[in-house]
Design a protein around this nucleic acid. Structure first.
Lengths: 153, 153
DNA sequence: CCCGATTATCAGGTATCCTTACTATCAGGT
DNA sequence: ACCTGATAGTAAGGATACCTGATAATCGGG
């Protein structure tokens, strides 16, 4: 094959996506005996960067307010997330990780990395260099599509 | 940064994964007015390569027999998949796409490609070349982990 | 011909999403 | 002040996708 078209690249990406999903989801869920689903993990990932309101979270994850409300409810009950009233606007609360929640998140992420990294270590130096260039480039063009309320997670 | 370690690569991959998921899932669901979820789409993708039994499908997708049974039930009801008895083993049925199912699948896939390709077309020639090398390499090392009942979808 | 393994469904449970209401609060204009 | 529309969040009800047992039919080897 000569040079890849963007359609070739797209089809390959579509093929790899389910593999990645399965491996990551599997590993996150195995963490530390506690059940943590991918949606929960992603919410924790957002909150790890700083406190957010419920609607800000919903926008970033592109789910309805209601879905995020339920999701956060579980995390609060488990003691991973704290709701504190926002004095400047009594309609909303600020959501932030508790110390327990942060530790849990970091542990889960570490497990996922520890599982995936040995697989990627099998790449040749050339391939690793290509990954180093390709993945951030993909990140950049895909993140555009997420324009408002952009995310990166 | 000097050369990427496999852990750097892993963390970048984890960051890109949700973007990809969201864009693809969004596009597949918009197809042709009919609601098609990602799990359904992936089942159709497997059957597009040839007939399979229910348990073979469940193994490939790494879900329980029960989950696959439900999933296939919906696809059969919609006329996208046909169940035909296997004369060589009366316990099982062969599942295959109907003409309607194949057309639906190809349309949905086309929509996803049409949406993603313009984004990828913004990559520079260097970046596209890196993607061309990197994605199949990732596919290869990740597919290992899927060892038996391998998949590629 | 029996017995363990395989194929599939039934029963029942949970999580994640949705849409459509509803309540509380805020902010702007008259 | 007061009304009005927008925004923040919850409640209610429904669908899909996953799970673990428990069962029923069939297959295959001793």
């Amino acid at each position: 094959m000569a040079t890849w078209t963007s359609e070739d690249a797209t089809r390959e990406l579509l093929a790899v996506l389910p593999l990645l999903n399965r491996i990551v989801a599997h590993e996150v869920r195995r963490e530390a005996g506690e059940e943590t689903t991918m949606p929960q993990f992603r919410v924790l990932a957002h909150l790890a960067d700083g406190a957010l309101t419920l609607s800000a979270l919903a926008k970033r994850r592109r789910v309805s307010l209601q879905s995020m409300s339920e999701l956060v409810q579980v995390l609060v009950e488990r003691g991973w997330v704290a709701r504190t009233p926002d004095p400047s606007d009594r309609r909303q609360h600020l959501l932030q990780l508790t110390a327990h929640g942060r530790a849990h998140y970091e542990r889960a992420q570490e497990m996922a990395v520890r599982r995936l990294a040995p697989l990627l270590a099998q790449l040749s130096p050339d391939e690793m260099a290509a990954v180093q260039l390709a993945i951030p480039a993909l990140h950049r063009v895909l993140a555009q599509e997420e324009s408002s309320g952009n995310d990166g997670n």
